[in-house]
Nucleic acid binder design. Structure first.
Length: 456
RNA sequence: GUGGUUGUAGCUCAGCUGGUUAGAGCGUCGGUUUGUGGUACCGAAAGUCGCCGGUUCGAACCCGGUCUUCCACCCCA
């Protein structure tokens, strides 16, 4: 055997069974998106670098796959730049395009570019692959699918309520019960930072706070101190570390912490509105949980922040995330356009469903009936019957080669084909079909119409 | 990007402290007179032991690099 070919790290091939399973998830999500009134769009797999660079922070820029210019790209690099070996500067000269990193920024670009054709509020969904030059881990790939639903052009909090409902609807439809939808609000985080005198260190503060359940209270405090947050401020945070209980009790606790911060109070109001909406409307299988340590996507989120955790006992990073971004289209020059959206991590959801064995048995499509090949004369008659079966919506096929019957039966077994038709010399003469049920082993001699009836 | 980990037939793995022609199970293919299967029996094919280089009389095994796997950090779906 020659040297084995391979695929780049963090990418995957999908076999027929895997594709079927993934399509099942896609279709379920898509159906709910449409039921909720979202419309599909697609954007190119690569964008101008200038569209993407700088939108995800320094870390994000590093993880964007850059596409090398065509032609003699080095000719644009002068000797001085070349000798300096400054990767960042050289990159901007030799690469002007980059692979899509997420679906939100391209969507913002889309909205700005097509603002005159769009009827606002615009509810769009988008299911496409994205690429990140990350180091792969379990559930972390360099090419993966995101399923995004966003609304732009409305700052109504009913949208947030709707997105919580949408998460619940999708995960319920997938029979993935007990997911936790965590919610937080950027304004609360800003408010806390304000109260403890660390407005200018919001990101450092939240990054540290985000690690609370992972590294514990003490280490979080140490990290905050290290980032220059004063001890007096950290002391004020004390009630936050022991924040527990229901949505309502946590809100009360937050009110007392944030009573001096206007922004913080605004955040609390927003959370209460969303929570009240959800309490009244109810959720099918998901739980909504306030989590003040949740701090994702702060580079652009301005209000609500969402993250979905798999049901307890499943070891997996978040399977969904999202939030409100008042200023997103602002970076592309369109002011005062508020947006809010959520994302489903298809690949991780697939891993979780696999883990919990939640895929329906019927997801894998296989042909319904295989005709055994006994030679060209018989095959011709078989093909006529197959053509009629197909015209009637029955998936059927002929084994292409006149191999030993035992081989043909083995093939049917391996492909999980439920029915086999034997059409040999005697059937040809009597104008009948011997239909065998491969599960039960039963077989009977039928006319075409009887066979069609049995297979439909 | 940092630190660690993994890599032997299609798949899952074995291979003792480096020593002659690298093994097993499953799968594949062929056969048990090409009209009946998923279970039986017989037989066969299949590996530059991830790749490159080094140490050694000799390396799947030791050393270095590189790629890959998985994990932690970072970040994130």
């Amino acid at each position: 055997m020659a040297q084995k070919p391979s695929i780049p790290k963090g990418t995957r091939d999908f076999n027929p069974e895997e594709v079927s399973k993934r399509n099942y998830i896609f279709n379920t999500i898509k159906k709910q998106f449409e039921i909720f009134g979202f419309q599909p769009i697609e954007t190119p797999s690569f964008e101008n670098s200038s569209t993407l660079m700088g939108k995800y922070g320094e870390e994000g820029d590093r993880l964007i796959f850059k596409i090398l210019n065509s032609g003699d790209f080095l000719s644009k690099v002068d000797d001085e730049l070349y000798t300096a070996k400054d990767s960042t500067k050289i990159t901007s000269r030799i690469s002007e395009k980059a692979l899509r990193y997420d679906l939100t920024v391209p969507f913002a670009r889309y909205v700005v570019q097509h603002q005159n054709e769009i009827d606002f509020p615009f509810k769009r969904y988008q299911i496409q692959p994205v690429w990140r030059a990350d180091r792969p881990q379990k559930g972390r790939f360099r090419e993966f699918f995101q399923c995004d639903a966003d609304v732009v052009g409305s700052d109504s909090l009913w949208q947030e309520v709707e997105f919580v409902q949408l998460y619940d609807a999708v995960f319920s439809a997938l029979d993935l019960k007990g997911v936790t939808i965590k919610i937080n609000n950027r304004k609360i985080l800003s408010g806390i930072a304000e109260v403890i005198g660390a407005q200018d260190k919001l990101i450092d503060f939240t990054v540290a706070l985000d690690k609370l359940d992972k590294i514990g209270e003490e280490k979080v405090k140490i990290e905050m101190l290290g980032k220059g947050i004063p001890q007096s401020g950290i002391d004020k945070l004390q009630p936050l570390f022991s924040l527990k209980g229901s949505f309502g009790t946590q809100i009360e606790e937050l009110k007392s912490i944030l009573n001096t911060s206007e922004e913080g109070k605004k955040g609390i109001e927003e959370l209460e509105f969303i929570n009240q909406g959800i309490e009244t409307l109810g959720l099918k299988t998901a739980n909504l949980q306030l989590d003040v340590t949740l701090a994702r996507g702060l580079n652009y989120y301005t209000g609500a922040i969402f993250e979905v955790a798999a049901p307890e006992g499943v070891k997996m990073g978040s399977i969904g995330g999202g939030g409100r971004y008042d200023d997103l289209t602002g970076i592309f020059g369109l002011k005062d356009m508020s947006g809010v959206g959520i994302s489903f991590g298809l690949d991780r959801i697939a891993l979780v469903l696999e883990d919990l064995d939640l895929f329906p048995e019927t997801v894998t499509n296989t042909v319904n009936v295989l005709f055994i090949n006994f030679g060209d004369a018989e095959a011709m008659v078989s093909m006529k019957a197959i053509k009629q079966l197909r015209d009637n919506g029955v998936s059927a096929e002929l084994f292409p080669d006149n191999k030993k019957t035992i081989k043909q039966f083995n093939y049917a077994n391996k492909r999980n084909i439920p029915f086999v038709v034997l059409l040999g010399e005697s059937e040809m003469h009597s104008n009948t079909f011997t239909l065998k049920n491969m599960k039960t082993g039963d077989q009977e001699s039928l006319s075409f119409d009887e066979m069609l009836n049995a297979l439909q």
